[in-house]
């Protein structure tokens, strides 16, 4: 895209594109590792697979420095308010990878204590199937996410304002008859649970 009169070393582009390029190549993951998938996440960071090749090796454990949350492992009822609070603490722009069957859908744990997919309660960008996913799969998901950022990102974060296309899973909370319902909800704003209504 050379413009007349400029030398070869100057390139003209859109500011959005430039921002996307910068963002996608330095994702800082926040490893929200709860269970077995967390070990594969560690393996992805360790010697053989080396996530640093994709510019995402700077794992920071404080949500305020991160822009990519990797939820690795199942999220139990007691953990979900924590997850939501951490998600809210991350600054924009932020993305979320749901790693493994458990985080994406509850996996084999269809029991009373496990949240059946974190996407019911927080937004998710990329799902990684597998139990656990191989490190290669996680790397692929990082590449996919980079692709998504490059395509959809805007410098002002406008893409986050419009509701996502496609429907998020239906809330199941209404399916339970009121007589059966028990109150154990979490309030993410204060991270305390609500008292019974």
């Amino acid at each position: 895209m050379a413009v007349e009169g400029l030398s070869e070393s100057v390139m003209v582009t859109q500011l959005d594109k430039l921002a996307n390029w910068v963002r996608k190549n330095s994702l800082w993951p926040m490893p929200f590792a709860t269970a077995c998938c967390g070990i594969e996440l560690m393996a992805t960071g360790a010697s053989r697979h080396d996530i640093a090749r994709f510019g995402a090796e700077a794992m920071r454990f404080t949500p305020r420095q991160c822009d990519l949350m990797i939820v690795a492992g199942r999220v139990a009822m007691k953990m979900l308010p924590v997850l939501q609070r951490i998600w809210l603490q991350m600054p924009e722009p932020k993305w979320c990878i749901s790693m493994g069957a458990c985080a994406s859908s509850g996996g084999v744990f269809d029991t009373y204590a496990v949240v059946q997919g974190i996407d019911r309660f927080i937004p998710v960008d990329v799902y990684v199937p597998g139990c656990p996913p191989r490190p290669e799969q996680l790397l692929q998901s990082v590449i996919d996410l980079q692709d998504k950022i490059q395509r959809t990102g805007t410098i002002a974060g406008k893409e986050f304002q419009i509701p996502a296309q496609g429907h998020p899973p239906r809330s199941l909370a209404v399916d339970v008859p009121p007589t059966e319902r028990m109150v154990a909800p979490g309030n993410y704003a204060t991270a305390t649970r609500l008292q019974s209504e």
Partner: peptide, 28 residues
Amino acid sequence: GYLHSGFEKLGEHLDYNQYVTIVDRKNY
């Protein structure tokens, strides 16, 4: 209890061979 996922309850619903997949995930 932040990872309580009902392993023992699952054991009452899966047969002896099937439960091996759940047992695996106990100490991963």
